[in-house]
Amino acid sequence: MGEDMEEEYEGGIVKKFMFVNRKAPYGTIYALEVLEMVLISAAFDQDVHIAFLDDGIYQIKKGQDTKELGMKNFSPTYRALEGYDIEKLFVERESLEERGLTEDDLLVPVEVISRAEMGALMAGMDVVLTA
């Protein structure tokens, strides 16, 4: 990942960015390419937030094993985000409950918040990127 990593951004402007994940991994490429976008954003020193809601929470489900699909298992990358200073990961509680999952099923530390809190958090963003 990141063969096109940009140089450190010197623009000085810091905006609140949110990457919103509502889709499961592997069935479509969105989860993987959003993650690539998140990694690049780290070079720009912005205030980056990642939201997982609806089927997006399956992106960070523990125990992903893609060997029999021959596809790259990119889930370990979510654990590497901390090394890029991307630590604001939010998961919607209602989305977990609807899918019979709990925080223990997730492979990376996150903040679990309610749908109402997620709505309020989204409302404070400058740039919202979805796929």
Binding site: Y9, F17, E36, A43, Q46, L129
Partner: peptide, 19 residues
Amino acid sequence: GLGQLIEAGIQADRMVTFG
């Protein structure tokens, strides 16, 4: 590079996604 997207997000007043 993808950085051009992030940079647009920073520099533009509004970012609109179509998907």
